[in-house]
């Protein structure tokens, strides 16, 4: 079980989402991706895509307007 952290702070949509999609492809089931974002639309479209894809998703607001989207590949 690995944990991968991607820093997408300051990246505008859709960059965080594409980064997450590419990372998930390379990961094994059970691995966890921590995506750091501060683009308000990314904390909506990333979890939305991940849930539709069937992964476990959690969002944590780590600072004002800064989030960690935690995705466990399923």
């Amino acid at each position: 079980m690995n944990e991968i952290i991607i820093d997408a702070l300051g990246e505008a949509c859709p960059v965080p989402l594409i980064k997450a999609q590419n990372a998930i492809k390379e990961m094994a089931v059970g691995d966890v991706l921590v995506l750091q974002v501060d683009h308000s639309c990314a904390m909506k479209n990333v979890p939305e895509w991940a849930r539709k894809d069937g992964h476990n998703v959690e969002i944590e607001e780590v600072d004002d307007g800064e989030w960690e989207v935690i995705i466990e590949k399923a």
Binding site: M1, E3, E61, V62, D64
Partner: peptide, 19 residues
């Protein structure tokens, strides 16, 4: 959390401001 995280990265969080 339902997600088991490999490393328990409990980074100390800055207290969030109420805006």
């Amino acid at each position: 959390s339902s997600i088991k995280r490999a490393s328990s990265r409990t980074r100390t969080r800055k207290p969030k401001k109420n805006q």
